[in-house]
């Protein structure tokens, strides 16, 4: 299973993560699929996504919004991709759309078959057991305007992910508190940092904070 968690930030900040991601592709003519969190204005972000990875020589990209009806034909091509990328955005809306269209089992199968699933911010949170961190802390969280009640998500890993982390007392206090409520580590990455998981092997790219049972540890200093 190969997963990559991007926190966020500008393209140049994420170069190290991109390098790792691309190095894992064996196919000489790889195909990447971009799944935006919402159809709304996502064409712009798709173009940015293409530009981000075109420099690695990738030529085949699929744009696949999931909150509008789609046909099975394109979905079949999506699932044949080498990499599927889940974009940033509103985590609740994104998860609700994936669940509504029953895409989660298909994406899990994609990962089990060797496909690389990458996610940025909301897209990264969605790969974890639940999207609780999207609702936390109160001063910096997504709005659950979909009224989503079940926060359980892909559960592809046994840790939680917190993107756009800022190394401050305010965040630390909130995340320590949060970590007491869960029985798995919470990895918090600032923009430009992230995590790569390759067959149970975790690799932290950029400085990452780990919050576990009310304590904070700095990884990859």
């Amino acid at each position: 299973m190969r997963l990559i968690f991007y926190s966020g930030g500008e393209v140049k900040q994420n170069k190290n993560l991109d390098d790792v991601l691309i190095s894992k592709i064996a196919n000489p003519t790889p195909q990447m699929t971009y799944i935006p969190y919402a159809h709304y204005e996502s064409e712009i972000h798709f173009k940015e996504f293409v530009e981000q990875y075109q420099i690695y020589g990738i030529e085949k990209f699929i744009y696949f919004p999931v909150d509008v009806p789609y046909d099975q034909i394109l979905l079949r091509e999506v699932l044949k991709s080498d990499i599927i990328h889940l974009s940033g955005g509103n985590t609740f809306y994104f998860l609700a759309s994936l669940k509504k269209h029953k895409l989660m089992p298909l994406l899990k199968t994609f990962v089990k078959r060797g496909g690389i699933l990458s996610g940025l911010s909301a897209g990264a949170i969605i790969m974890t057991p639940s999207i609780d961190t999207a609702a936390y802390p109160e001063f910096d969280c997504d709005e659950n305007y979909e009224g989503l009640k079940n926060f359980s998500s892909f559960n592809l890993v046994n840790f939680h992910f917190y993107p756009h982390y800022k190394n401050s007392k305010r965040y630390d206090k909130a995340l320590k508190h949060f970590s007491k409520k869960i029985d798995a580590p919470l990895y918090a990455c600032p923009d430009g940092a992230g995590i790569f998981l390759d067959d149970q092997q975790l690799r932290f790219i950029g400085q990452t904070a780990c919050f576990y049972q009310g304590k904070k540890f700095i990884l990859n200093k």
Binding site: E10, E41, H45, K47, N90, Y93, S121, E143
Partner: peptide
Amino acid sequence: DPDTKLKEKRPVKITDSKQLRPF
């Protein structure tokens, strides 16, 4: 119009969840 639409520069991080609600 892709000639104007795709030239817009937007932040990579998208967190403003209110954006969809009015629509």
